[in-house]
Protein backbone atom coordinates (compact mmCIF):
# COMPACT_ATOMS: atom_id res chain seq x y z
CA UNK A 1 0.00 0.00 0.00
CA UNK A 2 2.36 2.68 1.14
CA UNK A 3 5.39 2.16 -1.04
CA UNK A 4 8.23 4.32 0.18
CA UNK A 5 8.22 7.49 -1.87
CA UNK A 6 10.72 10.28 -1.72
CA UNK A 7 8.18 12.41 0.08
CA UNK A 8 7.79 9.99 2.90
CA UNK A 9 11.47 9.41 3.52
CA UNK A 10 12.17 13.13 3.77
CA UNK A 11 13.44 14.64 7.00
CA UNK A 12 13.67 18.21 8.27
CA UNK A 13 17.45 18.16 7.82
CA UNK A 14 17.70 16.64 4.37
CA UNK A 15 14.82 18.49 2.78
CA UNK A 16 14.84 21.93 1.22
CA UNK A 17 11.42 22.51 2.70
CA UNK A 18 9.93 20.45 5.46
CA UNK A 19 6.59 21.00 7.14
CA UNK A 20 6.43 19.24 10.46
CA UNK A 21 2.97 18.81 11.92
CA UNK A 22 1.83 22.19 10.65
CA UNK A 23 -1.61 23.45 11.66
CA UNK A 24 -3.44 26.62 10.81
CA UNK A 25 -6.83 27.85 11.86
CA UNK A 26 -8.87 30.98 11.38
CA UNK A 27 -10.62 31.37 14.68
CA UNK A 28 -12.58 28.19 15.19
CA UNK A 29 -12.12 27.10 11.58
CA UNK A 30 -9.29 24.60 11.29
CA UNK A 31 -7.84 24.93 7.79
CA UNK A 32 -4.63 22.88 8.05
CA UNK A 33 -4.36 19.96 10.44
CA UNK A 34 -1.08 18.35 11.34
CA UNK A 35 0.42 18.60 7.86
CA UNK A 36 3.77 16.89 7.40
CA UNK A 37 5.45 17.16 4.06
CA UNK A 38 8.97 17.40 2.72
CA UNK A 39 10.39 18.56 -0.56
CA UNK A 40 13.92 17.67 -1.60
CA UNK A 41 16.01 19.95 -3.71
CA UNK A 42 15.07 19.58 -7.38
CA UNK A 43 11.75 17.90 -6.70
CA UNK A 44 8.41 18.95 -8.09
CA UNK A 45 5.52 18.28 -5.74
CA UNK A 46 1.95 18.86 -6.87
CA UNK A 47 -0.81 19.60 -4.41
CA UNK A 48 -4.26 18.61 -5.56
CA UNK A 49 -7.60 18.54 -3.83
CA UNK A 50 -11.08 20.00 -3.78
CA UNK A 51 -11.87 23.66 -3.23
CA UNK A 52 -11.45 24.69 0.37
CA UNK A 53 -9.01 21.85 1.11
CA UNK A 54 -6.41 24.33 2.34
CA UNK A 55 -3.98 24.16 -0.60
CA UNK A 56 -3.55 27.92 -0.96
CA UNK A 57 -3.28 28.32 2.77
CA UNK A 58 -0.51 25.74 2.87
CA UNK A 59 1.42 27.58 0.18
CA UNK A 60 0.92 30.91 1.91
CA UNK A 61 2.24 29.49 5.17
CA UNK A 62 5.42 28.41 3.40
CA UNK A 63 6.42 32.04 2.75
CA UNK A 64 4.77 33.36 5.87
CA UNK A 65 1.96 35.26 4.21
CA UNK A 66 -0.03 33.36 6.82
CA UNK A 67 1.21 32.54 10.30
CA UNK A 68 0.90 28.94 11.40
CA UNK A 69 -0.67 28.04 14.73
CA UNK A 70 1.15 24.79 15.33
CA UNK A 71 4.05 22.69 14.11
CA UNK A 72 7.27 23.86 12.51
CA UNK A 73 8.33 24.90 9.05
CA UNK A 74 11.93 24.06 8.16
CA UNK A 75 13.67 25.69 5.24
CA UNK A 76 17.13 24.54 4.20
CA UNK A 77 17.29 22.37 7.29
CA UNK A 78 16.56 25.17 9.76
CA UNK A 79 13.32 26.04 11.53
CA UNK A 80 11.91 29.36 10.31
CA UNK A 81 9.36 32.11 11.12
CA UNK A 82 8.01 30.85 14.45
CA UNK A 83 9.31 27.83 16.24
CA UNK A 84 10.13 26.42 19.64
CA UNK A 85 13.74 26.36 20.85
CA UNK A 86 14.60 25.13 24.33
CA UNK A 87 10.94 25.28 25.24
CA UNK A 88 10.63 28.91 24.17
CA UNK A 89 8.82 30.41 21.22
CA UNK A 90 11.20 32.07 18.78
CA UNK A 91 9.77 34.64 16.37
CA UNK A 92 12.09 35.47 13.49
CA UNK A 93 12.74 39.19 13.02
CA UNK A 94 11.21 40.76 9.91
CA UNK A 95 14.60 40.91 8.24
CA UNK A 96 15.05 37.16 8.37
CA UNK A 97 11.50 36.56 7.18
CA UNK A 98 12.15 38.91 4.26
CA UNK A 99 15.40 37.16 3.40
CA UNK A 100 13.67 33.77 3.33
CA UNK A 101 10.81 35.13 1.25
CA UNK A 102 13.34 36.58 -1.17
CA UNK A 103 14.59 33.07 -1.83
CA UNK A 104 11.13 31.58 -2.32
CA UNK A 105 9.32 32.62 -5.48
CA UNK A 106 5.55 32.73 -5.56
CA UNK A 107 3.21 32.81 -8.53
CA UNK A 108 -0.39 33.76 -7.87
CA UNK A 109 -3.57 32.77 -9.62
CA UNK A 110 -4.34 36.46 -10.26
CA UNK A 111 -0.77 37.31 -11.46
CA UNK A 112 -0.53 40.37 -9.19
CA UNK A 113 1.85 42.22 -11.46
CA UNK A 114 2.58 45.80 -10.45
CA UNK A 115 0.33 47.82 -12.77
CA UNK A 116 2.32 51.05 -12.51
CA UNK A 117 5.56 49.43 -13.68
CA UNK A 118 6.51 48.13 -17.10
CA UNK A 119 7.19 44.45 -17.63
CA UNK A 120 10.89 45.12 -17.24
CA UNK A 121 10.21 47.31 -14.20
CA UNK A 122 8.21 44.52 -12.61
CA UNK A 123 11.08 42.09 -13.01
CA UNK A 124 13.98 44.31 -11.89
CA UNK A 125 12.14 45.90 -8.96
CA UNK A 126 12.99 43.36 -6.27
CA UNK A 127 16.47 42.40 -7.55
CA UNK A 128 17.46 46.08 -7.41
CA UNK A 129 15.76 47.09 -4.18
CA UNK A 130 15.84 43.86 -2.20
CA UNK A 131 18.96 42.10 -3.46
CA UNK A 132 20.73 45.40 -4.27
CA UNK A 133 21.85 44.18 -7.66
CA UNK A 134 23.37 46.84 -9.90
CA UNK A 135 20.76 48.18 -12.32
CA UNK A 136 22.53 46.99 -15.45
CA UNK A 137 22.98 43.50 -14.11
CA UNK A 138 19.34 43.28 -13.04
CA UNK A 139 18.27 44.52 -16.45
CA UNK A 140 20.39 42.00 -18.36
CA UNK A 141 19.15 39.23 -16.13
CA UNK A 142 15.55 40.36 -16.65
CA UNK A 143 15.94 40.44 -20.42
CA UNK A 144 17.38 36.94 -20.36
CA UNK A 145 14.41 35.75 -18.31
CA UNK A 146 11.99 37.47 -20.69
CA UNK A 147 13.64 35.64 -23.55
CA UNK A 148 13.22 32.42 -21.65
CA UNK A 149 9.47 32.97 -21.19
CA UNK A 150 9.18 34.20 -24.76
CA UNK A 151 8.34 37.84 -24.10
CA UNK A 152 11.40 39.77 -25.17
CA UNK A 153 9.32 42.15 -27.25
CA UNK A 154 7.08 43.08 -24.31
CA UNK A 155 9.77 44.49 -22.03
CA UNK A 156 8.53 48.07 -22.28
CA UNK A 157 4.81 47.28 -22.16
CA UNK A 158 2.60 47.73 -19.13
CA UNK A 159 0.87 44.68 -17.63
CA UNK A 160 -2.58 45.78 -18.78
CA UNK A 161 -1.37 45.65 -22.36
CA UNK A 162 -0.67 41.91 -22.10
CA UNK A 163 -2.89 38.85 -22.27
CA UNK A 164 -3.43 36.79 -19.14
CA UNK A 165 -1.00 34.15 -20.28
CA UNK A 166 1.64 36.77 -21.00
CA UNK A 167 1.06 38.41 -17.64
CA UNK A 168 1.49 35.13 -15.86
CA UNK A 169 4.73 34.43 -17.72
CA UNK A 170 5.98 37.84 -16.63
CA UNK A 171 5.00 36.97 -13.07
CA UNK A 172 7.05 33.78 -13.33
CA UNK A 173 10.01 35.73 -14.71
CA UNK A 174 9.62 38.25 -11.87
CA UNK A 175 9.85 35.46 -9.32
CA UNK A 176 12.78 33.80 -11.10
CA UNK A 177 14.73 37.06 -11.14
CA UNK A 178 15.31 36.57 -7.42
CA UNK A 179 17.15 33.30 -8.09
CA UNK A 180 14.77 31.43 -5.83
CA UNK A 181 15.60 28.10 -4.26
CA UNK A 182 11.95 27.13 -4.27
CA UNK A 183 9.03 28.16 -6.43
CA UNK A 184 5.43 28.12 -5.24
CA UNK A 185 2.64 28.10 -7.80
CA UNK A 186 -0.94 28.64 -6.65
CA UNK A 187 -3.23 27.63 -9.49
CA UNK A 188 -1.11 29.61 -11.91
CA UNK A 189 -3.34 28.73 -14.85
CA UNK A 190 -6.80 28.80 -13.27
CA UNK A 191 -7.56 32.40 -14.19
CA UNK A 192 -6.57 31.92 -17.83
CA UNK A 193 -8.63 31.35 -20.92
CA UNK A 194 -8.20 27.72 -21.97
CA UNK A 195 -6.14 28.58 -25.03
CA UNK A 196 -3.61 30.45 -22.87
CA UNK A 197 -3.05 27.70 -20.33
CA UNK A 198 -0.58 25.80 -22.49
CA UNK A 199 1.96 28.60 -22.81
CA UNK A 200 2.19 28.98 -19.04
CA UNK A 201 2.36 25.25 -18.40
CA UNK A 202 5.16 25.01 -20.93
CA UNK A 203 7.22 27.54 -18.98
CA UNK A 204 6.55 25.57 -15.81
CA UNK A 205 7.54 22.32 -17.47
CA UNK A 206 10.79 23.85 -18.72
CA UNK A 207 11.49 25.09 -15.24
CA UNK A 208 10.94 21.65 -13.76
CA UNK A 209 13.19 20.14 -16.42
CA UNK A 210 15.95 22.54 -15.39
CA UNK A 211 15.80 21.15 -11.89
CA UNK A 212 13.90 23.93 -10.11
CA UNK A 213 12.34 22.85 -6.84
CA UNK A 214 8.62 23.45 -7.14
CA UNK A 215 5.53 23.16 -4.97
CA UNK A 216 2.57 23.44 -7.30
CA UNK A 217 -1.11 23.72 -6.49
CA UNK A 218 -2.90 22.78 -9.67
CA UNK A 219 -6.02 21.42 -11.22
CA UNK A 220 -4.05 20.45 -14.33
CA UNK A 221 -3.87 16.74 -13.79
CA UNK A 222 -1.85 16.22 -16.98
CA UNK A 223 0.85 18.48 -15.58
CA UNK A 224 0.76 16.77 -12.19
CA UNK A 225 1.01 13.34 -13.79
CA UNK A 226 3.85 14.16 -16.19
CA UNK A 227 6.01 16.54 -14.25
CA UNK A 228 5.78 15.85 -10.55
CA UNK A 229 7.95 13.61 -8.44
CA UNK A 230 5.18 13.36 -5.90
CA UNK A 231 1.50 14.19 -5.79
CA UNK A 232 -0.18 15.16 -2.56
CA UNK A 233 -3.94 14.90 -2.28
CA UNK A 234 -5.45 17.18 0.33
CA UNK A 235 -8.99 17.44 1.63
CA UNK A 236 -10.42 19.20 4.66
CA UNK A 237 -7.06 20.54 5.75
CA UNK A 238 -5.42 17.15 5.82
CA UNK A 239 -3.10 15.21 3.59
CA UNK A 240 -5.23 12.29 2.58
CA UNK A 241 -2.70 10.57 0.40
CA UNK A 242 0.68 11.21 -1.11
CA UNK A 243 2.78 9.26 -3.53
CA UNK A 244 4.31 9.08 -6.94
CA UNK A 245 2.01 10.30 -9.70
CA UNK A 246 1.83 6.82 -11.18
CA UNK A 247 0.47 5.46 -7.91
CA UNK A 248 -1.94 8.30 -7.26
CA UNK A 249 -3.35 8.49 -10.74
CA UNK A 250 -3.57 4.79 -11.52
CA UNK A 251 -4.15 3.18 -8.15
CA UNK A 252 -5.13 5.64 -5.46
CA UNK A 253 -5.40 3.81 -2.18
CA UNK A 254 -7.91 6.17 -0.65
CA UNK A 255 -11.56 6.31 -1.54
CA UNK A 256 -11.68 10.11 -1.37
CA UNK A 257 -8.72 10.45 -3.72
CA UNK A 258 -10.40 8.11 -6.18
CA UNK A 259 -13.62 10.09 -6.02
CA UNK A 260 -11.86 13.41 -6.50
CA UNK A 261 -9.85 12.16 -9.45
CA UNK A 262 -12.90 10.66 -11.07
CA UNK A 263 -14.79 13.93 -10.83
CA UNK A 264 -11.97 16.11 -12.04
CA UNK A 265 -10.73 13.80 -14.80
CA UNK A 266 -14.24 13.33 -15.99
CA UNK A 267 -14.97 17.03 -16.17
CA UNK A 268 -11.67 18.12 -17.66
CA UNK A 269 -10.28 15.12 -19.47
CA UNK A 270 -6.69 13.94 -19.06
CA UNK A 271 -5.80 15.28 -22.49
CA UNK A 272 -6.47 18.90 -21.41
CA UNK A 273 -4.37 21.85 -22.43
CA UNK A 274 -1.27 20.25 -20.93
Amino acid sequence: MSEPSTVETASPQSSLLYLEGVSKSYGALSVLRDISLGIEKGQVVCLIGPSGAGKSTLLRCVNHLETINGGTIHFEGKPVYRYMRDGKLVVDPERRVEAIRASIGMVFQSFNLFPHLTVLGNIVEAPIHVLHQPRAEARDNALALLAKVGLTDKAENYPHQLSGGQQQRVAIARALAMNPKLMLFDEATSALDPELVGEVLKVMRDLAAEGMTMLVVTHEMGFARDVSDAVVFMANGEIVEKGKPAEIFTAPSNQRTRQFLQTILHSEGMAGAA
Binding site: N63, L65, E98, A102, N112, F114, A126, H129, V130, A175
Partner: peptide, 22 residues
Protein backbone atom coordinates in the same frame (compact mmCIF):
# COMPACT_ATOMS: atom_id res chain seq x y z
CA UNK B 1 -5.51 45.49 -4.14
CA UNK B 2 -4.38 43.09 -1.41
CA UNK B 3 -2.60 41.01 -4.04
CA UNK B 4 -0.16 43.86 -4.62
CA UNK B 5 1.00 43.76 -1.04
CA UNK B 6 1.32 39.99 -1.13
CA UNK B 7 3.24 40.02 -4.39
CA UNK B 8 5.70 42.50 -2.89
CA UNK B 9 5.99 40.55 0.34
CA UNK B 10 6.62 37.32 -1.52
CA UNK B 11 9.54 39.03 -3.25
CA UNK B 12 11.09 39.78 0.12
CA UNK B 13 10.22 43.47 0.21
CA UNK B 14 10.26 45.17 3.58
CA UNK B 15 7.19 47.02 4.82
CA UNK B 16 8.80 50.35 4.00
CA UNK B 17 9.96 49.42 0.51
CA UNK B 18 6.60 47.94 -0.30
CA UNK B 19 4.82 51.12 0.76
CA UNK B 20 7.19 53.41 -1.07
CA UNK B 21 7.60 51.53 -4.34
CA UNK B 22 4.39 49.54 -4.75
Amino acid sequence: AAGQREAGQSLGMSRRLLMRRI
